[in-house]
Amino acid sequence: MKKILFVTDLYYNANGRRYYEEDLFITSKLRDEFKLVICNPKDMDSFNDEFDLTIFRNAGPVANFPDEYNKFRNKIKANNLKTYNSFDGKGDMNGKDYLLELTNLNYPVIKTIDRIDNFDKLPNVDKYVIKPKDGADSIGMEIISKDEVYKKVSKEDRNTLIQPAINFEYEVSFYFIDKDFQYALYAPDKSKRWELKEYKATKEDLEFANKFIEWNNIDHGIQRIDACRDENGELLLVELEDLNPYLSVLELSSDVQDKFIKSLVKSVNRVLEEK
């Protein structure tokens, strides 16, 4: 049996999410197929070259362990080690600059700038969102007025993203393994982001999500496309999570859980079999 290093922080406390329960469930299933060891992200560089594959999962924001994360990525590249996800994505695994790129490419995304001089490129709304480029889990995010944006973001600042605050109907997430759609979940009460229910994605919904999956074009791994439905009924991208997306797998029906685990095992085996 192949050996897998499963990187996660079982003690990371995420608001509204049970990281440790999700990863204990997933590892309990993967153990049927692989030899598996769970490792804290701060220890991963000591062991990852002893395994056939490192699966990077619910490790919390990498801002909590930047040195270990950068060393990990450099080591993976230098030694051609196998990871899951692959580190060739263009989304959250590299920070939030992709939101600027997608804005400039006119993708259906919440318009985003990182220069106060470009403020006129944003729609005129009552409130705006500012957040650090290296943020996660809403850390450092603020919803403020236009006047406050000019006070808080200097002309020299290039590390803060600025977006219009969207008055959306609900948030919805689409989950993929490699490029294959698995399931969708949404928050019918927009004030409770992580109280999720299964969502029946339409053809148009999947066309929207697939635009970002094709754009990102990672070799293998799990991706979560987070979107919001605006007042006009259109979907807009909020985030392309391609590093270690929380899966809310415990909220799924047993049939969908089984389908997801089978797809995950198949994908991992494909990676392990590659030369």
Rank of each mutant, 00 (worst) to 15 (best):
F6R: 14
T8I: 00
Y12T: 03
N13I: 03
R17E: 15
R17I: 03
R18F: 14
E22K: 06
L24K: 14
F25G: 07
K29P: 15
R31L: 13
L36R: 02
L36M: 07
P41S: 07
M44C: 13
D45K: 13
S46I: 09
F51G: 09
T54W: 06
R57E: 02
P61V: 04
V62E: 09
V62M: 09
Y69M: 04
Y69H: 13
K71N: 14
F72Q: 05
F72K: 09
A78D: 13
N79V: 00
N79D: 15
N80Y: 05
K82P: 11
T83V: 07
S86A: 14
G89W: 04
K90H: 10
G95I: 03
Y98V: 02
L99H: 11
L100E: 12
L102Y: 02
N104L: 13
Y107I: 01
V109F: 03
K111N: 12
K111L: 12
K111V: 03
T112N: 09
I113G: 09
R115E: 10
D117G: 03
V125R: 10
K127F: 12
I130T: 06
K131P: 08
G135Y: 08
G135K: 08
A136R: 05
D137Q: 14
M141K: 15
E142K: 15
I143A: 07
D147A: 10
K152N: 07
V153M: 04
D157Q: 06
Q163T: 01
I166D: 05
V172T: 06
S173K: 09
Y183W: 00
K192N: 09
E198I: 00
T202F: 02
E204Y: 00
E204G: 00
D205R: 01
A209I: 00
E214V: 04
I218V: 02
D219M: 04
I225Y: 01
D226N: 05
C228A: 12
E231G: 08
E234Q: 08
L236I: 00
D242G: 01
L247I: 01
L247A: 00
E251M: 04
V256Q: 05
K259R: 09
S263H: 00
V268S: 05
N269F: 02
L272R: 00
K275D: 11
